[in-house]
Design a binder for these strands. Structure first.
Lengths: 116, 116
DNA sequence: TCCATATATCATGAATAATTGATATATTTG
DNA sequence: CAAATATATCAATTATTCATGATATATGGA
């Protein structure tokens, strides 16, 4: 991961529709969602949604898989990991106590996870 | 945290100079950095850097504190937490195993931290 | 108070990105 | 192969963002 790839990922999440799409895919988990389903849920025109999905894809934040004539999209957690690792690089190195509360809240240790 | 506030934060990180600034501040930890120091390190003109710092500030990703005639900037980890919690909301809820590897890598449990 | 230093704001031109109608491509079905 | 369905690409307009010169504000020191 480098600065360019990372800014591309943040840019992909900097627009309301795409952020909504990504969050839907995060919630959908392994099941993913069909491109058409996403457009319908978010009430976005077909070509606009296609363009937005393409931005997320190019940014490495989502993956897809053709299923017949439909295409299923998934959140790409490895892409998110790469982006965030770059963003937070060396955070803990110098002053661990600064990062602890942050990590507590993001991870499954608090309320956003039931059994992990 | 809502979609608007969150897209604002991602937009702030979607430009190379601002991403570089934020990463510098993450590494700087509690010591922070003076506005001038940041501009010098990154070789960015004074007014351009000022504008970029202002974007990060408005996005809730950095804080600052005046010290005489200089101003010291810090990464705001609470802001980052809010942004990421919103992004990853309900990720673990449905399919915890999907998120585990991601969390392992971001947190201090692996190699990006020495003693936390 | 006057000057120097550090940072912020304003106005503007240039570059980028977003939306959308029209159209193209890929897949399935008859 | 023709029609139907799902998604992608193209072209054009509009909107947003960026960098920067000029200038303003804030603080400290003589």
């Amino acid at each position: 991961m480098d600065t360019n790839k990372s800014t591309q990922a943040f840019a992909a999440l900097s627009q309301a529709t795409r952020l909504d799409v990504f969050r839907l895919l995060v919630k959908a988990g392994e099941d993913g969602l069909l491109a058409g389903e996403i457009g319908e849920k978010l009430q976005v025109k077909q070509n606009t949604m296609s363009a937005n999905l393409s931005v997320l894809l190019n940014a490495g934040l989502v993956k897809n898989k053709r299923e017949g004539r439909t295409i299923r999209y998934y959140a790409d957690m490895e892409g998110v990991t790469a982006m965030l690792s770059f963003l937070l690089e060396d955070c803990c190195g110098g002053q661990p106590q600064l990062c602890q509360p942050f990590i507590q809240q993001i991870t499954c240790s608090t309320d956003n996870c039931n059994d992990a």
